[in-house]
Amino acid sequence: MELDKLYNAILNQDVEGAVKIAEACLKAGIEPLRALDHASEAIRQVGDLYGRSEIFLPQVVLSAEAIKKVADVLLKKVPRKKRGEKAKFIIGTVEGDIHDIGKSIVATMLEAQGFDVIDLGRDVAAEKFVEAVKKHKPAFVGCSALMTTTAIAQREVIDALKEAGVRDDVKVMVGGGATTELHAKEIGADEWGADAMDAVVKAKRLLASRTCLLKK
């Protein structure tokens, strides 16, 4: 019952309500990670609704805010070693391209799904991506490009990362209106996102495989 309420509160962007329900879950003796699983399920549903143009960016942001606060409440009761760390994701629109909206939507969806997003903005030069990688040591770099004429700059970012010797430290994802999976392979990216939710799903998949590799 409480878990269903938690799910609905996040889905309906009720930030304060979700926090109160999370506290009630703990009082009722519900395992915090189980409650967090339910909350994550609500965020997945938020992503689906966004993909169908049934809800929009402001609603996604509020749902994301709700799950962040819920996670703060629940994770206090989880031993530190069981919590895991948020994966850092550096994202930006490549140099020469001023289209910001698509990249911002992806950034928001990633934040909603628990990534620690560092948004470099739009018209970002390859060397700025490199500087950010050296400074923040992220798990991911995401490059957005809306136009056919700027998609080639995604390759420049990958080349710059190689030149700086940090390419293998990160997974590079690319996306944007003019890009395809084939383009991503041709320029040497690790993954391509067809849209915001696809990017999130693939980032999570890469993260899981990366974690496996690290364990080995």
Binding site: L57, P58, L62, I101, T108
Partner: peptide, 13 residues
């Protein structure tokens, strides 16, 4: 406005 939305400031946006 997109920055405002991302900060949760929907009324200002």
């Amino acid at each position: 406005p997109i920055s405002l939305i991302r900060e949760g400031k929907n009324d200002e946006a």
